[in-house]
Simulated scan of single mutants.
Amino acid sequence: MRTNRIVAASAALILAAAGLTACGDDSASTGAAGDAVTVKIGTTDADQKAWTAFAEKAKEEGINLDIVKFSEYPPVNPALDEGQIEISKFQTINYQAQYNASAGKDLRIVGSGEINILGLYWKDHTSLDGIEGEEVAIPNDPSNQGRAINVLVQAGLVTLKDGAPTLTPTPADIDAAASKVSVVPVDAAQTSSAYHEGRPAVINNNFLDRAGIDPQSSVAADDPNSELAEPYINVFTVRAGDIDNATYEKIVEIWQSDEVTKALEEDSNGTAIQVKRTKEELNEILDNLTKDYS
């Protein structure tokens, strides 16, 4: 995910910059239990199968999702803070922490979604055999760079210097003498080019399909259950006063349903793994990361 420095703007500017449109039925429908609740939720992923399944399942549960589409990440958090939407599902904990720190806000997490596994790909190879001494291309943007390095750490290919930041390492934090490979930071879009040139590369999921790379062909990947992966859990975000809203908690539960999970797996070619963590755990991770960025 691309990291941007976010500055809160007026609601009017937010809506204009996002180029957002609402979809779905604004009027609440009536179910067996009475009038359905309408919730305005913002996302950048509304066109995915998972979101269609999500809206259908929510309607069955008496929640009418008024999905607000954003074309890019930066306007979503300010829109939530200004009340243009009620809840969002588009970002990782890491991205939210950077927003809270840079904008001086206190948006909170009401529940977890999935984590998208980040993999190391090496053309015409099915294992790490022979990789020692190779240069590995990694994304150069701050958020993905640190995570890519940790993929290599978990694979036993890179060792960090004593005292290096655990969650957000940079190439300067790598102990070259103790590592089996070196890293070459490049634009995230160029990692797939490095792969096709025969170099091992850590490649973001959104570049795999367009580059004709099988997501299941990675020779190494991060562990979604590892502490190192925690900042990259996708989350449902609300304003602080809504942290205990029962409807929003129900929305999280619906996202974790079998129907949505199946559609999510299809969208991601099996690289998205649902993560179930309590909101207390998620907000503790958020607060620790926010401190690091403050």
Rank of each mutant, 00 (worst) to 15 (best):
V202K: 03
V202T: 06
V202S: 08
V202H: 07
V202G: 04
I203C: 12
I203D: 10
I203G: 11
I203M: 12
I203Q: 10
N204H: 05
N204Q: 12
N204A: 10
N204C: 08
N204G: 07
N205M: 07
N206C: 00
D209F: 00
D209G: 01
D209S: 04
D209M: 00
D209R: 00
R210F: 01
R210H: 01
A211Q: 04
A211K: 02
A211N: 07
G212I: 04
G212A: 10
G212P: 02
G212E: 12
G212H: 03
G212S: 10
I213E: 11
I213Q: 11
I213W: 08
D214V: 01
D214R: 02
D214E: 11
D214C: 04
P215E: 15
Q216W: 00
Q216I: 00
Q216N: 11
S217V: 02
S217D: 11
S217W: 04
S218Y: 14
S218V: 00
V219C: 10
V219M: 09
V219F: 09
A220M: 04
A221W: 01
D222F: 06
D222T: 03
D223N: 15
P224S: 05
P224N: 05
P224I: 03
P224A: 07
P224E: 08
N225Q: 12
N225D: 14
S226N: 09
S226A: 14
E227C: 00
L228P: 01
L228R: 14
P231F: 05
P231N: 07
P231V: 02
P231T: 03
I233A: 13
N234M: 13
N234L: 11
N234P: 00
V235D: 13
V235P: 05
V235E: 13
V235C: 13
V238L: 06
V238R: 07
V238F: 09
V238W: 08
V238S: 14
R239Q: 14
R239M: 07
R239D: 15
A240E: 15
A240T: 02
A240R: 05
A240M: 02
A240C: 03
G241N: 12
D242Q: 08
D242N: 13
D242V: 02
I243G: 09
I243T: 13
I243Y: 07
D244V: 01
N245G: 09
N245C: 06
A246M: 01
A246L: 03
A246T: 07
A246W: 00
T247D: 12
T247G: 02
Y248T: 03
Y248S: 10
Y248R: 07
E249G: 12
E249H: 15
E249K: 14
K250R: 11
K250S: 09
K250M: 03
K250H: 04
I251M: 11
I251Y: 05
I251F: 05
I251S: 06
E253A: 11
E253F: 00
E253H: 01
